[in-house]
Design a protein around this nucleic acid. Sequence first.
DNA 1: GTGTAATTACTCGGATATTATTTGTCCGAGTGGACCCGG
DNA 2: CCGGGTCCACTCGGACAAATAATATCCGAGTAATTACAC
Lengths: 161, 161
Amino acid sequence: MRMSQGVEWALHTCLNLTYVESGQAVPTAALAKFYALPPAYLNKHLQALVRAGILSSTPGPRGGFRLARRPEAISLLDVVTAIEGSGEAFPCDQILREGPGGRPDVDYRHACVIAGAMRHAELAWRRELAGRSLADIRAEVETRYPDTPRNTRERFAALLG
Amino acid sequence: MRMSQGVEWALHTCLNLTYVESGQAVPTAALAKFYALPPAYLNKHLQALVRAGILSSTPGPRGGFRLARRPEAISLLDVVTAIEGSGEAFPCDQILREGPGGRPDVDYRHACVIAGAMRHAELAWRRELAGRSLADIRAEVETRYPDTPRNTRERFAALLG
DNA sequence: GTGTAATTACTCGGATATTATTTGTCCGAGTGGACCCGG
DNA sequence: CCGGGTCCACTCGGACAAATAATATCCGAGTAATTACAC
């Protein structure tokens, strides 16, 4: 039930990329040093974000990663599902098929009341995450911690220089 | 992010125990045969439910498990946390401490905006699960599948006889 | 000085180990009923 | 027939092993800037 720590890395990294002037790419090494993360493993997660269409990557010198869309168009749910996969958290193995009156031709992922209740709760979770974009997060951060934009850009400048 | 399949087993088993006349205990073997589950492993999960105060167990002949409280007083969240633990699904490792302006004396599990957003979504999920009791589930099952009470009791009678 | 071609350093991307978690199994401790035996 | 003591089968509970997923690392393919060189 615990989700991968890569989700935390991905969320913070995407938020940081929000502050990079668009068109400029940031390599894995710089993104990893930002929070003292293992570069090779962070790169693995960044690859997943590229496959999900959240980041775009360019190889070679001056290459690296950048946001593939505007921050308003990237929800927290997008990032989470890119790392964790889109599967349901509650795995309905349809054990009712083995129970009394169970039939092999029925899809109990829809028929089972328990599975329905679990799915309903999960939808509430997804709805919350889908309703918050990177732009929203960024706005709240800047309200509560006004130094963050400057600090972030300075750190990037130092890491890229 | 995927939760243990033991949650499904536990939920269905608790729901089935709802139909057993109170005072009567059902051994692991019978509960396992109900859905053709591995008895020893199901027993492991039942132990967790006992530790959480959801079931009570009695050893020896005519022993087994029974609900420790009324079905109205057992929420889906109770069962889920009994199996999965009460920890947060999103693990905030406070990587902001290594970032620019990060301080070791700050608890970023509360200060971090991203952690807050994730916790908010998780609370929505918990609220849904906490709002549904075994009695609610049972009522919905009986509305949609009127044969379930009789089928369940008959299967238990066959397994205990 | 300028255009071109070879070189080189840099970056991503996936294949490969290692560790942690989940899944699954087994055997011992304890309990309650049943049976046996004596009164 | 009735009471008590012994035995035995049944059940939970935790210790132990295998399989799966998460974590971490390394090296090769490809690219773009840079440099050297000829014109």
